[in-house]
Computed example of a mutant assay.
Amino acid sequence: MVPDRVDPVSGYRWYAPGQLDEARLLARLRRAGMPLADVRLVLAGWAGADTDLVRQLLRAHLRRLEQGLSDTRAEFSALRALLDHRENPMTSLRTDTAVRLSLSGPGLAAALDAVRFAAGTDPELPMLGGILFDVEGHALCLVATDRYRMAVARAAADGYDGPRVQVTVPLPLADAMRALLDGEGRVRLAVDGDRVTLETGSRQAAGQCLDHDFPDYRRLVRLPAGRRAVVDAPAFREAVRTGPVRAGEGREEGGTPAGLSVLEVTEDGSVTLAGDGADGRDLVAVNRAFLLDALTAGGDGRLILEFGDPTAPLAIRRPDDAHTFSLLMPVRLED
Rank of each mutant, 00 (worst) to 15 (best):
P3G: 08
A16N: 05
D21C: 03
L29T: 02
R31P: 00
R31H: 10
G33H: 06
M34G: 02
A37V: 10
D38Y: 03
W46N: 11
W46R: 04
A49F: 12
T51P: 01
L53A: 13
R55W: 08
Q56T: 12
L58I: 13
R64G: 09
E75P: 00
E75V: 14
F76G: 00
S77F: 02
L83H: 11
T95Q: 07
P106M: 10
L108D: 06
A109W: 05
G120N: 07
D122N: 15
L125F: 11
M127Y: 12
F133S: 08
L140H: 08
L140C: 10
L140M: 08
L142S: 11
L142V: 07
Y148E: 06
V152D: 05
G159A: 09
V167H: 08
P170Q: 12
L171N: 06
R178V: 01
L180S: 06
D182C: 06
V187P: 07
R188Q: 13
L198I: 05
T200L: 10
R203L: 13
A205W: 01
G207K: 07
Q208V: 09
C209I: 01
H212Q: 13
D213S: 14
F214D: 06
A225D: 14
R227G: 12
V231R: 10
D232E: 13
A233C: 12
P234L: 05
A235L: 15
A247P: 00
E252R: 12
E253F: 10
L260Q: 03
L260T: 03
E264C: 07
D268K: 02
S270F: 05
G277H: 08
D279E: 14
G280E: 04
D282F: 01
N287F: 01
L292T: 00
D293N: 14
A297Y: 05
G299K: 13
L305G: 02
E306H: 06
T311P: 00
T311N: 02
A312E: 11
L314V: 02
I316M: 05
P319C: 06
T324E: 06
F325H: 04
E334V: 03
